[in-house]
Simulated assay, not measured.
Amino acid sequence: MDKPGRIGGSILMSLLTAVAATPVAAADLQPKVVELFTSQGCSSCPPANANLIKMSNRKDVLALSFSVTYWDYLGWKDTYGRPEFTERQVAYEPALKQAGPFTPQMVVNGASTVVGNDLSEVEKLLAQAAPLKGPALAFSGDHIEIGAGAEHANADVWLVRYDPQVEAVPIARGENEGATLQHTHVVRRLDRLGTWDGSKTSFSLPNKVARLKTAVLVQRPEGGPILSAITD
């Protein structure tokens, strides 16, 4: 027969095991996602970059900076720009009732938008944004675990790799010629892992890259709202 001390220890270990098995991004703990679409060739973008740096310090926000490519023709090719980032922004515009992509644009939870260089308007949009209601997410080794939720079925699962450091980039040409622009949470890789069908499932993740953090987004297709988000 176990002594009281042993029984208490067993109960404590059981509780700790249960807590460890709980998804770390249950719906009520998930961050609000702020995506900045910016360009080093855009003279209006530096204030928006600065605003994202401020928001990147908030625990309740996942800040992501996507460098687009459509301003490269002005004489400076964005050092972080990729066509897939531009495509992501373009996909948002019909659902957000925008005539077309612009910079600096911030999109909150994939569902609302604002000009990114007006911090008060960005904060207002964040305050109004509803908490994410999608499936629970948890990292498990080299996999992302997604909980069940039939009411949210048929969503895209996106892998985002981003640099959490603040980086300074000197600009030699274009509208920001001579300036040194600061960036943070710059997205370096964006991959669609597959489709979540509403059932409990997992997706394998590619090997980690030095310096980069990993985020996973579960999102309605074709620029729809973000349902769930997690970052390591």
Rank of each mutant, 00 (worst) to 15 (best):
R211W: 07
L126K: 01
N51S: 13
W196S: 00
A25V: 01
N57W: 14
A179D: 03
D60P: 06
G134C: 05
L15Y: 09
D2Q: 15
S39E: 03
A18P: 04
Q165W: 03
D191S: 15
A50S: 11
T113F: 07
Y80A: 04
E84N: 10
A111F: 06
T103K: 02
A168F: 07
A48H: 07
P23D: 05
G75V: 06
D197W: 09
G174I: 00
R173K: 07
V61W: 08
V108G: 00
L15K: 03
V209W: 07
G149K: 15
A210V: 07
D28G: 08
A168K: 07
E145Y: 06
K213P: 08
L119F: 13
T184N: 03
A155I: 09
Q105K: 02
T22H: 10
D156C: 13
V68L: 12
I226D: 00
T69Q: 15
G9K: 10
A153D: 09
D142M: 12
P206R: 07
K97E: 07
H152N: 13
T79L: 14
D232W: 00
E145Q: 14
L159N: 00
D78M: 11
R188G: 11
A138E: 01
R58H: 06
W196H: 01
N57H: 15
V166I: 11
P164G: 02
L96M: 09
L64Q: 08
L227R: 02
D72A: 13
D78T: 05
V157P: 00
A111C: 00
T180C: 02
A48G: 12
Y73R: 10
S44D: 10
L62C: 06
A153Q: 14
N51C: 08
L15N: 01
Y92N: 15
P31I: 02
Q40C: 09
G178T: 05
I144N: 00
Q105V: 06
L29I: 03
V209P: 04
L126P: 02
P31F: 06
M13Y: 03
P164R: 05
A20G: 11
T86R: 13
